[in-house]
Structure formats: C-alpha cells, structure tokens
C-alpha cells in the first residue's frame, strides 16, 4: 500500500474499513490506561492535585499544533502533487484540530484559575494558542464559504501554508510581547523537568490522544469521500432531469 495506491478513494475506503476498528480499540485502551495512571499519579509539590489537568492539557496542546502540520502536508499534497485525497484530508482535519485547540485553551484556563487566581491570563502560551484557534476558525469559515470542494481546497491550502509560515513568527512575537508586559508573580506552567511519575502517564495520554486524532481523522475523511459521492450523484441526477 503506497501513497499512490491510496489515491484511489475506493481503495482508501476499504483500507479504512479494515483499520478503523483496530485503531478505535487501541485508542480506547490507551486512553483508559492513561486515565488510570493519571488518577494514580502523585500530587505535585507546587501545583498539588491540579497537576492532573496537565495530563489532558498537554496532549491537546500538542495535537493543536500537530493537526496544523498534518493540514500543511495535505496542503502541499493539494498544490504540488494534486493528490486526490489531500483535499479530503485537509478538510476533515480542520474541525478536529479546532476541537483539540479549544480543549487546550479551556483546560489551560481551568488550570490557570487555581494557579493564577484568574481564568484568563494573557500568558504567552495561552495567547498563542488562542490565535491558533482563531486561525482554525478562519480556515473553517473559508471551507464553508464556497460550495465547490476543489476550489475551496486550493484556497484553504494556500491559507494553511501561509499560516504554517506565520505561526512561528506569531509565537515569537507573542513571547516577546509577553515578556514586555510581564504580569507580576506568575507561576509558570509546566515547570523545569518532569519527574518520571508524571512523564509516563503524560506520554501514554499523548499517544492515546494522537491515536484518537488518527481514528477520528480517518473516519471524517471517509465521511468526506461519501459526501463528495453524494454531491456528484446529485449533480448527475440534476443533469439527467434537465436533459
């Protein structure tokens, strides 16, 4: 199975049908194990039990960036190689990425309330994730603005790549802006180095969430392919009726 074979949507669908149950099972097992380990993890001497939010916050934050890079690869696939599945992959990833980014924001804010005494702190990381979230929403708005899928795909691919180039600049400028306006006595998130007792549950959770993304993404791509079939069949029906 190479990338070229997958260019045939029917082959992709049959592969998806075979792989999805296994992926879903592995995801469920990993997330359950991760949840158990997170529940068993000791309290942090500084954050107390609140550190447990880290086990879901960090994987979501990592996925929020990972999904954008997946979309950038798909955008290259659309613009450079004209891979037929790249459009589908990019479109299916956007809402899932937006959901993970939203979760990273909200869990970060819920973590911040006990630590900072406020739900929202214009902290550099939270602010950059917020901008990332806005860009996800803009991308989804772009997808929804046009009804012709391939036209929307090319526009969205350009925007995704521009976003990928701009994200490091945005991250850098927000960091700079934040050190300029450093609020008094902010307890930094994360801390220096993680103890093994935190690291292992975190890795399990991160792997579990990554698999969750792969599973959801494949399923959403399958929906998208079916949606395009519905669309082409409806067009054929309309042209048959017109004739």
């Amino acid at each position: 199975m190479t990338l070229i074979d997958l260019a045939n949507p029917t082959k992709f669908l049959s592969l998806t049908a075979r792989v999805l149950p296994w992926l879903a099972g592995a995801t469920a097992i990993l997330l359950l194990v991760g949840f158990y380990q997170a529940a068993m993890a000791p309290d942090d001497y500084q954050h107390g039990a609140v550190v447990k939010i880290m086990f879901i916050h960090v994987p979501n934050a990592w996925l929020s960036m990972f999904v954008w890079s997946v979309m950038s690869l798909a955008a290259l696939g659309t613009l450079v190689w004209r891979h037929p599945l790249a459009d589908v992959a990019a479109k299916a990833a956007a809402p899932i990425g937006a959901a993970f980014t939203f979760l990273a924001l909200v869990t970060g804010s819920l973590w911040g309330r006990p630590m900072w005494g406020t739900y929202w702190q214009w902290d550099a990381r939270l602010t950059s994730v917020l901008i990332l979230f806005l860009m996800y929403l803009g991308l989804m708005a772009l997808w929804r603005a046009v009804d012709d899928p391939s036209r929307a795909a090319r526009a969205a691919a350009v925007l995704t790549l521009v976003g990928a180039l701009n994200l490091p600049i945005i991250k850098f400028s927000v960091d700079w802006w934040n050190t300029l306006h450093q609020p008094a006595s902010v307890l930094r998130m994360g801390g220096p180095t993680l103890d093994r007792a935190f690291l292992i549950p975190l890795l399990v959770m991160a792997l579990g969430f990554s698999l969750l993304f792969v599973t959801l993404h494949l399923a959403a791509m399958r929906n998208e392919i079916l949606r395009r079939r519905v669309r082409s069949l409806q067009m054929m029906q309309a042209s048959q009726q017109a004739a």
Partner: peptide, 21 residues
C-alpha cells in the same frame, strides 16, 4: 484537594467534546 471541581470539570469537558466529535 481543594480544586477538585476544576480537575473534574476539565476531564468532563474533554470527554464531552471528544464524545460530541
């Protein structure tokens, strides 16, 4: 600890959003 509601809320929220997806 004293912030149990925050921890439970965030886990519940993640579960809810994933289930909605």
């Amino acid at each position: 600890g004293p912030y149990a509601s925050f921890i439970v809320t965030s886990y519940a929220l993640v579960a809810a959003v994933v289930l909605i997806l």
